[in-house]
Nucleic acid binder design. Structure first.
Lengths: 334, 334
DNA sequence: CTGTTAGCGCATTCAT
DNA sequence: ATGAATGCGCTAACAG
């Protein structure tokens, strides 16, 4: 039924070792026999069995990717960066959504390891002790992608969310705003939640602006929760003259809510956020935001992983990618 | 170094066959010995090697997914549907972006087959003779997902793009519009391009509206090309009173362009399209569109594939999922 | 219910 | 430059 390396060997009149050599581009084969083998391969329609090869060589040229949710455009963009580089180095990726759920994350880490992936890219929520324990059972390298771990005991690549938020809030402050509301993510989320909130706080503190509890609402990153938070802000007195949103999607919700109240962005209320999703330039006014290099985060993570898998020495395995504020039209002087 | 089934057998004082049985949940094991084995597994930190299992059993519990571009929200949504169902049936997915490029598609199909996936989900551009040839070398089932093939010789799941477009244009016509422009995709693309254009044409024909060449512009599905096409339409005399866009993203470009010209949507120009991406309800006015059940297309494809892999008999392997027009605020009576 | 024995398809020594 | 032999870790008869 299925044609194996033995069949090719017989057809070509050589040993299976020789076939293996030509298939693996081993130079120690006479051009003539190489040709014979290729012809036999062609004739028989031979297709190497990567599973058998994986068992024999202990390499699968496959890496596992744990991602929160591929249907979220942020992660999808990261995933594309990962896959492009993986492809470039002849790896394939097994993709697993884990929704930032600890149990699910640990479960897929284990099945990925069972599948003998050559490396693991982890993009998740909090990295708990249980995660670390799971990571430590791995004999293959792991890199955290858009995620950090307290002890920095694993290679990682991400932006500095605290500074990104700090920078965002500062463009507001530099425009004279002092009543600045924040739509935060959940504070349990270390990157998009907690760190961005810390950046907000620090910016205000350094500017000598007192922090008011009712100027901070926590949302769930989605459009709808941006709407909800903004409605609340607009009911306040004094209402914020500017809103810093932890994510673009909530910021867009904010913009629309402000407009629905008959106010103007940015004339009446300025809005800024962090992410720079495609949609950010597809709203009116176009959203000013600090860009997070999603694709690069994925690409650089994967590149780092290839080095690790290759046992190359790494100079810096805690890479922080630069962010950049993108000035568009949603921020104005107060 | 790595602990195998033999180590567990020795540790538990049983044969490796018995260990294999408990690992595979074979009922023919005395509860007592089962317990002993589990303890040994625990003690040794044994992790089954799925590659070895795959070689021995000729099943990898892995399916290959060929997708155009995971960073495109439409496909990402489909992918999520695929992965959820795959997960449910204990499959993992190897994800490959192929950008609708024939060479790339055929290349990844082959590497996926080499990796001994148990099935293949193909989401691509045109299905050429070369594709069919590649498919035919496969000993595992293949289902086309959001893609059709002329001869219907492969299982597939999709919506009926022609009728979806037809329905969209008809809501325009039912509102009294007769000057209807279309922003099309490339006509080489059978689904999103050609079929949707055919639906547009048929709707006009059935309504006795002549088709004018300058009322049709072909774009590339992106926001920017929606803008470009719309600028052109607005320069016409008479200009269209309604625009049908092949995709939501181009439709959003249309809306903004109309607004930037000081006109109102839908009062001055109506806009409708096909897709229903998240963004559609995040524009003002919210976009009226005919929804394509992305997640379901993925989920149903994967479910069909599981049946095929399971050698179940299929009643209908050419499934057409329903679409639905979502009335929002971008269409008005002329 | 449990153990023995063969492969699965290939990479990889080690000879020659 | 090529071939023979071994084993990767496991499943799946088969026997008992």
């Amino acid at each position: 039924m299925t044609v194996t390396i033995y069949d090719v060997a017989r057809e070509a009149g050589v040993s299976m070792a020789t076939v293996s050599r030509v298939v693996n581009n081993n130079p120690n084969v006479k051009p003539q026999t190489r040709k014979k083998v290729f012809e036999a391969i062609e004739r028989l329609g031979y297709r190497p069995n990567a599973v058998a090869r994986g068992l024999a060589s202990k390499k699968t040229t496959t890496v596992g990717v744990v991602i929160p949710d591929i249907s979220n455009s942020i992660f999808a963009e990261v995933a594309r960066g990962i896959e492009d580089i993986a492809n470039m180095y002849h790896y394939n990726i097994i993709l697993c959504n884990a929704d930032k759920k600890k149990e699910k994350e640990i479960r897929v880490i284990n099945t990925l390891l069972e599948k003998q992936v050559d490396g693991l890219l982890f993009m998740g929520g909090v990295v708990t002790q249980d995660h670390i324990q799971a990571f430590n059972t791995s004999s293959v390298p792991i890199v955290l992608c858009g995620t950090k771990e307290e002890g920095n005991s694993f290679p990682s690549v991400d932006i500095d969310h605290e500074i990104a938020a700090f920078d965002a809030v500062n463009v507001l402050i530099s425009q004279g705003h002092r009543n600045i509301g924040m739509i935060s993510g959940t504070l349990e989320d270390p990157a998009n939640g907690y760190s961005r909130y810390q950046g907000y706080k620090r910016a205000l503190e350094e500017a000598g602006i007192p922090i008011r509890d009712n100027y901070v609402r926590v949302g769930n990153y989605r459009y709808e929760s941006g709407i909800e938070a903004t409605k609340y802000f607009l009911s306040l007195d004094p209402k914020p003259t500017a809103i810093f949103s932890a994510t673009d999607e909530m910021a867009i919700g904010a913009i629309h809510t402000i407009q629905d109240h008959g106010l103007k962005v940015p004339d009446d209320v300025s809005v800024i956020s962090v992410d720079n999703i495609r949609m950010a330039s597809m709203v009116r006014p176009m959203l000013t935001t600090v860009a997070q290099p999603m694709y690069d985060i994925g690409a650089v993570s994967m590149r780092l992983l290839t080095k690790l898998m290759n046992k190359e020495t790494i100079d810096n395995n805690q890479v922080i990618l630069p962010h950049e504020v993108i000035n568009r039209n949603s921020v104005a002087h107060v």
